[in-house]
Structures are given as structure tokens and as C-alpha cells.
């Protein structure tokens, strides 16, 4: 088991090399003549007005929240699916209840209009 994670650890450790090599090569080969116009933020040729980091709409947050709930649900479902061969009918009923309860949440969000993009 630990040998598996050793492989992934080594992979994680040396994987930055692969993007680093071309970026470094470009840094060596490319010209370096920055000026203020070249470095300004791109906005169709006109000057940027105001701050970039502004308040976003709440809709993104709601989608992210529903996503978190279903993500956690999936985390519970994966080991159950992997152990499917050893499950009794009771276990499958329990899992079905679990899924239906969460589907309820989705139905509630739908009925409340939380899924509308406005």
C-alpha cells in the first residue's frame, strides 16, 4: 500500500519540472522589454475603471453550496458502491433513503427557484 503512495509522492514531487521546463525556456529565449502600456491589464484598449476584485452575485455561492452537499454525498456513496457485493437488501434500502433525502434537497432548491440563473 505505502509503495502506491510512494509512487504518487514521487510523481507529485517531480511533476513541476514538466511545466517549468518550457516556461523557463521561454524566459531564456524571449525578449525582455517591458513598458507600462504593454503591462497594463487588457480591456479592449480602454483604461480599466475601478477595482477588479469586486462583489459577485450570490447565485455562484448557492451553486457552490449545492455542489458541496452533493460532493459530500458522493464521498459516502463511493465506499458503499465499492462494497456492493457484500451488501444486504437492508443496506441498499438505507442507501436509497440516503439518496432520496438528498434528492429532496435538490427538489426544494428547485421549487424555491434557487436553481434559476438570474
Amino acid at each position: 500500500m505505502l509503495a502506491d503512495w510512494q509512487y504518487i509522492g514521487i510523481f507529485l514531487a517531480i511533476s513541476p519540472i514538466f511545466p517549468a521546463a518550457p516556461v523557463l525556456l521561454q524566459w531564456l529565449l524571449g525578449p525582455k522589454k517591458p513598458n507600462s502600456i504593454k503591462n497594463s491589464a487588457y480591456e479592449c484598449g480602454i483604461e480599466t475603471v475601478g477595482d477588479t476584485w469586486i462583489q459577485f452575485k450570490v447565485q455562484y455561492y448557492i451553486y457552490a453550496l449545492i455542489f458541496v452537499v452533493f460532493d459530500v454525498e458522493a464521498v459516502f456513496l463511493f465506499p458503499i458502491a465499492a462494497a456492493y457485493g457484500q451488501l444486504s437488501l437492508f443496506a441498499i434500502g438505507a442507501t436509497a433513503l440516503f439518496i432520496i433525502l438528498l434528492a429532496d434537497g435538490l427538489a426544494y432548491a428547485w421549487a424555491k427557484g434557487a436553481l434559476e440563473w438570474i
Partner: peptide
């Protein structure tokens, strides 16, 4: 490879440079 490397004014240096590395690492 022969393009100039530009960092836009006001960019968050760490986040700006970390992103292209991290995305290739995850893909690999």
C-alpha cells in the same frame, strides 16, 4: 517560446504564476 514573458500590472504574483504550473501538474 520566443514570446516575451509579461506579468500584468497589479497581478497577484503568486497566484498568477502558480496557476499554470498547478493545472499541468493536476492534468499529469
Amino acid at each position: 517560446l520566443t514570446k516575451e514573458a509579461i506579468t500584468p500590472v497589479g497581478a497577484d504574483w503568486v497566484a498568477y504564476n502558480l496557476a499554470p504550473f498547478l493545472i499541468v501538474m493536476t492534468a499529469l
